[in-house]
């Protein structure tokens, strides 16, 4: 593979130096109590309730029809995104 075809980019001594330094940094930071609590509890999504009654919230036709789409994003995207994201006309990158 690539490893056999390319020269070593990281010398053994460089690795040892980095490893050693990282151990020191990590150990000194390790007494900070992190991740000890339960954290936020995500809501379980399986239930046996009929959600929002019979309102049309979930069955409004216009919400389902892609070709009649009139909604535009109206959340925090305009306030938080600078400077290139907002209003960009570039096609969505698919990865």
């Amino acid at each position: 593979m690539r490893n056999n075809l390319t020269p070593h980019l990281i010398a053994a001594t460089a690795l040892a130096t980095a490893f050693s330094a990282a151990l020191t940094v990590a150990a000194s930071a390790d007494d900070k109590p992190t991740e000890k609590c339960y954290g936020v509890a995500l809501k379980g999504q399986n239930d046996c309730a009929a959600g929002a009654g019979t309102s049309c919230a979930g069955t409004s036709k216009k919400n389902y029809q892609g070709n009649a789409w009139k909604l535009v994003p109206k959340g925090t995207c305009e306030a938080t995104v600078t400077p290139t994201g907002k209003g960009s006309l570039s096609p969505v990158a698919s990865r």
Binding site: A50, G51, A52, T54, C56, G58, L71, P73
Partner: peptide, 28 residues
């Protein structure tokens, strides 16, 4: 039918709260 749609949308809203906030509830 409404319960199925609302339930699935609520599940996605719970899993993608930041996406929902970015585009707004109606769009999401």
């Amino acid at each position: 039918r409404n319960n199925v749609a609302v339930g699935l949308v609520a599940t996605l809203a719970a899993r993608f709260p930041v996406c929902r906030r970015l585009v707004g509830d109606a769009f999401f």
